[in-house]
């Protein structure tokens, strides 16, 4: 099947029900998207599908032909993505960093639809888990990116 990832059409030969996560990591070699739970509980595998934050670990590759898939490797190709990354650096958000690809993309999607989110809107949108507990910095960085 053909998938459009980070603006490029890629031909992949996988079982149709293979989760997008493993297509991205193993077929396309893009390892910025992380496997952590595999059951859509944590959000480490978040990618953007037509701009929507999507838990790729439970999203079958079939049905995504024609969709625009964006991974962390291309986050800085959009203005909002660039601002989010800058804010992440400014606020020194990551610790171990493993969940942050998903956090950054979830934040980018949030700001794309809600340019100036309230704390409540941030808490609703940012359901990604972080075992290092960087939540307060994530919230501050999203506010920072919104103001930038």
């Amino acid at each position: 099947m053909q998938l459009t990832v980070n603006g490029t059409a890629r031909e992949v030969d996988v079982e149709p029900d293979t989760p997008l996560l493993w297509v991205i990591r193993e077929e396309l070699g893009l390892t910025g998207t992380k496997y952590a739970c595999g059951v859509a509980a944590c959000g480490a595998c978040t990618v953007l599908v037509d701009g929507q934050p999507t838990r790729s670990c439970v999203t079958p590759a079939e049905g995504l032909e024609g969709a625009e898939i964006r991974t962390i490797e291309a986050v800085e190709e959009t203005e909002i993505g660039r601002r989010v990354v800058e804010a992440w650096v400014e606020h020194q958000v990551p610790q171990c960093g493993y969940c942050q690809s998903g956090q950054v993309l979830a934040a980018t999607a949030l700001l794309s639809g809600t340019p100036n989110p309230t704390d409540a809107e941030i808490e609703t949108a940012m359901s990604n888990l972080c075992r290092c507990g960087t939540y307060n910095r994530i919230r501050a960085a999203i506010h920072g990116a919104a103001e930038a």
Binding site: L30, T31, G32, T33, K34, Y35, T71, I72, E73, V75, E76, V85, W88, V89, Q92, V93, P94, C96, G97, Y98, Q100, S101, V104
Partner: peptide
């Protein structure tokens, strides 16, 4: 002093054993 690994960890470039 700012952490040296923060940017790489914000753009998916940090490599872990699983990668």
């Amino acid at each position: 002093v700012p952490r040296i690994d923060v940017r790489d960890k914000s753009i998916g470039r940090a490599k872990y054993a699983i990668d």
